[in-house]
Nucleic acid binder design. Structure first.
Ligand SMILES: NC(=O)c1ccc[n+]([C@@H]2O[C@H](COP(=O)([O-])OP(=O)(O)OC[C@H]3O[C@@H](n4cnc5c(N)ncnc54)[C@H](O)[C@@H]3O)[C@@H](O)[C@H]2O)c1
Ligand SMILES: NC(=O)c1ccc[n+]([C@@H]2O[C@H](COP(=O)([O-])OP(=O)(O)OC[C@H]3O[C@@H](n4cnc5c(N)ncnc54)[C@H](O)[C@@H]3O)[C@@H](O)[C@H]2O)c1
Lengths: 213, 213
DNA sequence: TTAACATTGTGAAATAAATCACAACTAATT
DNA sequence: AATTAGTTGTGATTTATTTCACAATGTTAA
């Protein structure tokens, strides 16, 4: 069976963001090559990606911005929205709170947790912060499915297990370690150290060694 | 010709980090399956990755931790080290400064820049901060090849062009836009919004739709 | 109405990456 | 010295993803 490539999911989310910006500029239609330029890619890949959501363009005007956004929403979002929790209110955790809290309607951080008593029971960047003890009841009580981990590397595995035990189904992990969880929990690693070393590697080699992406 | 897969580069950096931790625990040898468990992957992939650096293990004892670390360093690092600049001392920029400044010997942030006069001419998390005007001479003067972009989305393209013009060869980009630069400049995007939406997507689907990674 | 044009949707081909599977090897044991 | 056990290195294969390339299509203009 032909299922949707994992990378396509990420790009669909990117397309939607770009389209929302275009809509705000009153653009009503666009071609695959325009979206490809904005998203960084080829027109063929854009068309292939859009096949996944079953939205059809038109050879004369391309894709209708409004309809495509709606179609992407239908594909990517759940009707009831998806609240998110964050664990670890340190330097990075606070930056992320400032960015994601109260921004998107369907994907927003509803609570943050930390083991340090000095950091909890207050509001940071508009987000309520609680001690770790309250994590299970919050996650279970609100039916939260997504967690963000911003704790030190050594704490990431136990925190991930607590999240999984509480019912979270997907984790965005900023700690530079690989998590070992049951296979039905989706983990996406944001390993900045790895990314920076990769950049440094290619920055130091000759142009012909630099992949086009 | 068989060149090294791009993903292998990132994993080699991860292997090194894991090995450094093992060395600190006085482990002298390990097998591919052990490294695979730590890094999250298969033993075959670990062995295939290590083929790239030409370090040979031994069927009886596996890989020698010390020698492998050295070999990885030889492959990944440049002899002279690679200083890094960061642009955009906002919420995220400061978090990254706190994490990367003065940490690794070969890859460290030596200067940060911002267009806001209120944020410059001081030291944040141990890193000196300068106004944007001084970026070209700093980058050129110190032969800096790597830049990190932490400015708002709308400013990322012009900032990227300034970095490229000053001589930077690789960019780690945290702004949620795709940069358009000459093909000899390597760009790695850290798009947290995309990552979070991907997690949310898979968290909301059934287990059998969750890729194993 | 018809021809010209640029784009879509997609089967087929190409490329990239992961995995399989096994001969070759090393050290420990008999 | 021969045997066993368990791992490495890698050719071959499989799977994932991207790109090619072209018939089908909607629109515009003659
Ligand atoms: N700061 C960055 O830019 C950056 C960059 C790359 C990676 N990271 C990674 O992100 C993670 C967080 O980094 P940071 O700079 O914010 O660290 P930090 O030390 O500033 O913050 C960590 C927070 O986690 C809390 N914590 C510790 N153990 C906990 C536990 N068991 N349960 C709940 N909370 C706990 C601490 O109280 C603290 O508030 C680390 O794993 C780090 O490696 C951070
Ligand atoms: N904060 C996060 O956790 C987070 C998460 C995802 C993405 N991002 C992205 O990272 C980037 C930075 O986010 P932030 O939260 O730190 O924003 P911020 O507004 O806190 O900081 C942006 C900084 O960039 C500086 N700046 C603006 N224009 C500039 C220019 N032309 N040259 C130099 N400096 C300039 C500003 O003075 C400010 O200090 C944004 O693109 C954002 O979308 C941030």
């Amino acid at each position: 069976m032909n299922s949707i490539p994992e990378k396509t999911i990420g790009r669909l989310s990117l397309y939607r963001r770009l389209l929302n910006r275009l809509r705000a500029e009153d653009k009503t239609h666009l071609y695959s090559y325009e979206l490809a330029t904005l998203a960084g890619g080829t027109p063929a890949r854009v068309r292939r990606d859009l096949m996944a959501i079953g939205y059809n363009g038109n050879p004369a005007h391309g894709y209708e911005v409004e309809g495509l956004i709606e179609s992407l929403g239908h594909f990517l979002d759940t009707p009831q929205g998806q609240p998110v929790v964050l664990v670890g209110i340190g330097n990075l955790g606070r930056a992320i709170l400032s960015f994601f809290t109260g921004r998107r309607p369907r994907l927003y951080i509803v609570a943050a947790f930390d083991s340090d008593p000095a950091k909890v029971n207050r509001v940071i960047h508009g987000c309520r912060c609680y001690p770790m003890q309250e994590l299970p009841e919050t996650v279970r009580g609100k039916g939260i499915t997504v967690g963000i981990i911003c704790v030190p590397a050594g704490e990431a595995q136990p925190v991930a297990e607590q999240l999984a035990a509480a019912g979270v189904r997907g984790i965005l992990n900023f700690a530079p370690v690989r998590l070992h969880l049951p296979g039905n929990i989706y983990v996406e690693d944001m390993d900045m150290t790895m990314a920076l070393e990769k950049v440094a590697y290619f920055a130091a080699r000759k142009p012909n060694n630099v992949p086009g992406k």
